[in-house]
């Protein structure tokens, strides 16, 4: 049985789940907005009156294999996020930590906060997810967790369309490698890994001053196996104006 403090009520609660299978989802919500002195981080933008980040958190709330959620917030946004999660009754959000200037640095902040529990063997699996991907399906999260339990690491990804092609170019802008549709996949989040592997990979990345574009990159470079779980376009990341409109349509389609 593990003692966990509850961020909303200042209470202490006891988690009675099995210690060996404790799964923590880290949601990265430290966007660029506030860092640029803008009024709103895009995770706070409302879609049908509800902030993007709440849709994201609700997916984890509805997923039975997730025991706890840790939110990584931009400096100065912790309180606003705590109020929002409390109002939305996000029971699994136990802690909000301050992130760093980059995605990699924010992940490192979360891992530092979880380090004692990872080293004691309390946490089995950690999922890293972008706060701006509000429509990940709980079934997909479950599938991802099962695969990560079996393989050690797993990410959601979507195959390119058959007619799509990705090419790798050299310094002279000449094609040196090509990946046809169905063989090249577009990585998404959540990405799930054994907690001890993740911590070791990020400690090593810090030593080597390596910054990956996603979480899996830090593990792949050390030879840890990372499996792929097929996802689809609905797990979109809100980055453009069109994504925002698409998110609104998806919201209606799913009845959220």
């Amino acid at each position: 049985m593990h003692k966990i403090s509850n961020v909303h009520k200042g209470e202490t609660v006891f988690d009675q789940r099995s210690a060996a299978r404790h799964v923590v989802a880290v949601v990265l919500a430290a966007g660029q907005g506030r860092r640029m002195g803008l009024p709103i981080n895009k995770i706070f933008l409302p879609i049908h009156g509800k902030p993007v980040i709440i849709y994201t958190l609700e997916a984890f709330e509805r997923c039975p294999v997730i025991d706890e959620v840790m939110l990584v917030a931009a400096a100065g946004e912790e309180e606003q996020l705590a109020k929002l999660t409390q109002a939305a009754h996000c029971q699994k959000v136990r802690r909000i930590v301050q992130g760093g200037p980059t995605r990699h640095a924010s992940e490192q902040c979360a891992l530092e906060a979880l380090r004692p529990r990872i080293e004691s063997g309390e946490i089995d699996l950690i999922l890293i997810h972008d706060g701006a991907r509000p429509f990940v399906l709980p079934e997909r999260i479950q599938q991802l967790v099962e695969t990560a339990h079996a393989c050690g690491g797993a990410i959601l990804a979507m195959p390119l369309q058959e007619e799509e092609l990705i090419v790798e170019v050299d310094e002279q802008q000449a094609i040196c490698r090509r990946f046809a549709g169905q063989r090249a996949w577009r990585a998404q989040t959540p990405q799930a890994f054994r907690a001890a592997w993740l911590l070791a990979a990020y400690d090593r990345a810090r030593q080597d001053q390596f910054e990956g574009t996603d979480t899996a990159a830090s593990l792949e470079r050390l030879g840890y196996p990372v499996a792929v779980v097929e996802s689809d376009q609905s797990n979109l990341k809100i980055t453009t104006a069109y994504d925002l409109l698409q998110a609104e349509r998806l919201c209606r389609h799913r009845g959220l």
Partner: peptide, 24 residues
């Protein structure tokens, strides 16, 4: 609401204003 989104025409993240009518 003002926020930062990637602009397909500028080819980089820029400040955007999102206007809402009712909830939409």
């Amino acid at each position: 609401c003002q926020t930062e989104l990637d602009c397909l025409y500028c080819g980089r993240p820029t400040v955007h204003t999102v206007f809402y009518a009712s909830l939409y």
